[in-house]
């Protein structure tokens, strides 16, 4: 049924660290691989080797550029590139579930995972319309809605070694930027991480109450304040050239004509 549970015992979800993500897209590929071979219909591609390829993905990595504002201590701050993985946030108040006319979309009471029963999906697309995050994509080959299952077929799978019982994206992340756990338990590792790092909701004004949290990028280090142990060794050997070069430098300075800044002594 498409009525949302008033409360779920657990709130399984992801914590994504925007400070750590290197934008390698390994999670995108491993997600596509696992979910093509397992739960539900495969994630199809259209015109995969042609001029206009596209396909169904449950996890996509965007990249944003953040230009910090100038401050007295940093008048000319460098722009930061933030890689931004985005998949279903398994919202507590999931609008995609309540709009579904057939009951194909549902939120599990036991762990809060939002799933689609593909046998009941008519492919009307209304759930994708209602999702602010673009987490749902209609598979063009199958005509049904696809979305992140939080790898429900891995996390409880006794046939897998214990280390693999996490979502595929988490298992494959080489940077450790994706964390999986129960966000309903304040003492879980992921909940502590969110508390320590100021984890945030995406589009909180939409009222969806996402379970997945994003950890904001930390401010960049200030290199000027550090003691550079190599500095003495890297300093120029001569401030003003002597000998033949010194004579040449002076002789050239005396010649009429323009002298550029760097010409005398090598130091501005």
């Amino acid at each position: 049924m498409t009525e949302l549970p008033t409360n779920t015992a657990k709130k399984m979800g992801l914590v994504i660290d925007l400070d750590t993500c290197v934008g390698c897209h390994a999670c995108v590929i491993s997600c596509k691989g696992w979910n093509t071979e397992n739960y539900g219909a495969p994630l199809s591609d259209q015109d995969a080797y042609g001029a206009d390829p596209s396909g169904t993905f449950l996890n996509r990595v965007h990249s944003f550029e953040v230009q910090p504002a100038a401050t007295p201590s940093q008048p000319d701050p460098a722009a930061q590139l933030i890689h931004f993985p985005k998949s279903c946030l398994h919202c507590e108040d999931a609008p995609c579930v309540t709009v579904c006319p057939t009951g194909a979309s549902y939120k599990r009471i036991e762990d809060g995972i939002v799933l689609v029963n593909e046998d009941n999906c008519i492919g009307c697309g209304l759930c994708a319309w209602s999702c602010p995050y673009g987490a749902r994509e209609l598979d063009l080959a199958e005509g049904v809605m696809k979305k992140c299952t939080l790898c429900v077929d891995r996390i409880y799978n006794d046939n897998l070694p214990e280390v693999d019982r996490v979502p595929s994206c988490v298992r494959s992340c080489p940077a450790g930027a994706r964390h999986f756990g129960d966000l309903g338990d304040p003492n879980s590792e992921v909940s502590k991480l969110v508390a320590d790092r100021g984890g945030m909701d995406l589009m909180p004004e939409m009222g969806t109450k996402p379970v997945n949290k994003y950890l904001p990028p930390r401010p960049k280090d200030q290199l000027e304040e550090q003691i550079d142990v190599l500095a003495p060794l890297l300093a120029p050997v001569t401030e003003t050239p002597g000998g033949f070069l010194g004579w040449l430098d002076k002789a050239l300075d005396r010649l009429p004509g323009q002298t550029s800044d760097q010409s005398s002594g090598g130091q501005a």
Binding site: M1, T2, E3, V97, T98, V99, C100, P101, T102, G103, A104, N120, C121, I122, G123, C124, G125, L138, D139, E142, G143, V144, M145
Partner: peptide
Amino acid sequence: HLGRPERALKAFSQWKTS
């Protein structure tokens, strides 16, 4: 515009929320 028009009858079931 449905992906699976043959299942359209199922759309009558969720009047409580949809």
